[in-house]
């Protein structure tokens, strides 16, 4: 049974999530403030955290930072649509994915599954990565999907490798640019659009594995359904 920690200040949403998630077989614990949330992470050792960005005592992004100091547990951020910047800040500071209020339970569960699959691993450091049907060999700079090798340029490979290392996590434009192009880059998101488009085309039928999160970044998922 997976343990979910829900951090939210809205009593009604806490109740609805507790009942909904418990009925789906999750073990649910609740926290009403950011400070309590960070404390609960070390106490209950959740498998995934559902975190509201609008907390009374601290900003959601700061909660992410606080949790990341000692835990790699996946964090799923709840946000209102108007909080684009805070959403990106939370992702930059260690959150894995986000979901916009209001949301249905099916969507929430799908995201939780992706997050749980990624698990509490730190970014993968092995030399051979595998995400669903995609295999990436970092040593030989080779990638294949369902056994068919992909013909990638150096930058395309770097981008794919970066996303594969963070599979399941929503990577912001900023993170990807800094990680693939280098620390001098951070705002040239038009590069990304071009490369993501090419990658998706080369992935062919598996193109849907590379998800665009409009205005936020990209996410590589094993199971695009």
């Amino acid at each position: 049974m997976s343990k979910v920690l829900v951090v939210d200040d809205d009593e009604a949403l806490l109740r609805a999530l507790r009942i909904g998630l418990t009925a789906r077989g999750y073990e649910v614990s609740l926290a009403r403030t950011g400070a309590e949330g960070v404390k609960q992470v070390s106490l209950v050792q959740p498998d995934v955290i559902v975190l509201d960005l609008g907390l009374p005592d601290m900003d959601g992004a700061d909660v992410c930072r606080g949790v990341r100091r000692f835990s790699a547990v996946p964090i799923l951020v709840l946000s209102a649509a108007a909080n684009e910047e805070r959403k990106v800040a939370a992702l930059d500071l260690g959150a894995d994915d986000y979901i916009t209020k209001p949301f249905g339970m099916a969507e929430l569960e799908a995201r939780l599954r992706v997050a749980l699959r990624r698990g509490g691993r730190a970014p993968d450091s092995s030399t051979e990565l595998s995400v669903g049907d995609l295999d990436v060999d970092l040593v030989h700079h080779m990638a294949s999907v369902a056994g068919h090798p992909l013909e990638l340029t150096a930058k395309e490979f770097d981008l794919l490798a970066f996303l594969a290392r963070h599979a399941g996590k929503v990577c912001t434009h900023h993170m990807i640019l800094a990680g693939v192009w280098g620390p001098g880059y951070g705002s040239e998101s038009q590069y990304l659009r071009v490369y993501a488009h090419r990658l998706r085309r080369k992935l062919g039928a598996h193109g849907a594995m590379l998800r665009t999160q409009p205005g936020v970044g990209y996410q590589l998922v094993a199971d695009p359904a």
Binding site: D10, A12, L13, I19, A23, A80, K101, P102, F103, G104
Partner: peptide, 16 residues
């Protein structure tokens, strides 16, 4: 925020 918060609870409850 104020409109979405109650909506989020309603939608979560209904979808469950």
């Amino acid at each position: 925020h104020d409109l979405r918060t109650p909506l989020a609870s309603v939608k979560t409850a209904v979808s469950t």
